[in-house]
């Protein structure tokens, strides 16, 4: 068996059209390349506006791809018709960040979970049985099915969203900041659920987050995005603990350590790093000026 990637993104550009006549568009992604193997978690770290969410949406067919390829099992899925995209729903799924707006407020949990199944042609009875299994898989009680989303806390809603993503037994789940809106202890439990499901069901994650610690916890490999480009990528431990790229270094140093003394140390390190980088930039600028 060869190490054929499950998802292979190559030189992807996404430009959102500008508003109004002849307005220039907004380039959200610029030549992004990334691949994900089966059963693998690739973490995607970046700050707001870095394009990390756009990359996830492009894979899901929710963002306009202007150039480049997105190959899923060797087939380009960047420009699928609606019908072809629907057929792909059993392969690629999503868990969004906001557990409050990602569940339809007027539908019961059972309806939400059964919907992707019945849309794919599963019979009602089979679907209901599957829903019970899904609730169990995300550790929610079986009677949760008859309730509305608003009766659940953020963590529970995120479990429901995970169950919905799992309904069609996909091979790849795009996780767009799935734990960012959750409390600390809930966050840890939901992350463990993600890992548990991965080990049990054999699914790959593109795990998007702004939090290096979260990404480090769940990812096999990590890619760092900055202004629409991937600036650093590689082994999870390497990127999140000993980064090479100046931006990743700044990102790592900016995250406060939950320990007063070590944070004092990190603060000093950060100031030193910033000073060093500023100096390097100045020299680089001077060199360009001379040249």
């Amino acid at each position: 068996m060869t190490a054929e990637p499950l998802l292979d993104v190559r030189d992807l550009d996404v430009v959102y059209p500008g508003k109004g006549f002849r307005a220039s568009g907004f380039r959200a992604l610029n030549g992004v390349s990334l691949d994900i193997l089966e059963n693998e978690t690739v973490g995607l770290v970046g700050e707001s506006g870095s394009g990390k969410t756009t990359l996830g949406r492009a894979v899901l067919g929710l963002a306009p791809v202007t150039a480049g390829r997105i190959e899923y099992r060797g087939r380009d899925i960047a420009h699928l018709s609606r019908r072809e995209r629907r057929a792909l729903s059993s392969e690629i799924q999503v868990v969004f960040q906001d557990p409050y707006s990602s569940l339809s407020p007027a539908m019961t949990i059972e309806q939400i979970l059964a919907e992707p199944l019945t849309a794919g042609g599963t019979e009602g009875k089979t679907a209901r049985a599957r829903v019970a299994g899904l609730l169990d898989a995300v550790h929610l009680p079986a009677d949760a099915g008859s309730r509305l989303p608003r009766e659940f806390s953020g963590g529970q809603r995120q479990r429901i969203a995970i169950a919905r993503a799992l309904a069609l037994d996909p091979k790849l789940i795009i996780c767009d900041e799935p734990v960012s809106a959750l409390d600390l202890s809930t966050q840890a439990r939901v992350l463990d659920l993600f890992i548990e499901i991965q080990e049990r069901n054999g699914v790959a994650y593109l795990f998007i987050s702004h939090d290096l610690a979260v990404v480090r916890h769940i990812s096999h490999r990590v890619a760092v995005m900055y202004r629409g480009e991937i600036v650093e990528s590689g082994d999870g431990d390497q990127v999140t603990a000993h980064p090479d790229h100046p931006y990743t270094q700044r990102l790592l140093m900016a995250a406060p350590v939950p320990d007063p003394d070590r944070q004092e140390q990190r603060r000093a390190d950060r100031h030193r790093l910033l000073a060093a980088q500023a100096e390097a930039d100045e020299q680089a600028g001077a060199a360009i000026g001379i040249g």
Binding site: A188, D211, H217, H220, V222, G234
Partner: peptide, 27 residues
């Protein structure tokens, strides 16, 4: 204590995907 335990910052990294046949990288 339970809050402090939930902190991920000092946690172990997940490590590389364990698969003998895997040879790949994020480009």
């Amino acid at each position: 204590r339970s809050l402090l335990e939930a902190i991920l910052d000092d946690g172990e990294p997940r490590g590389a995907l364990v698969r003998a046949d895997v040879k790949g990288g994020v480009r």
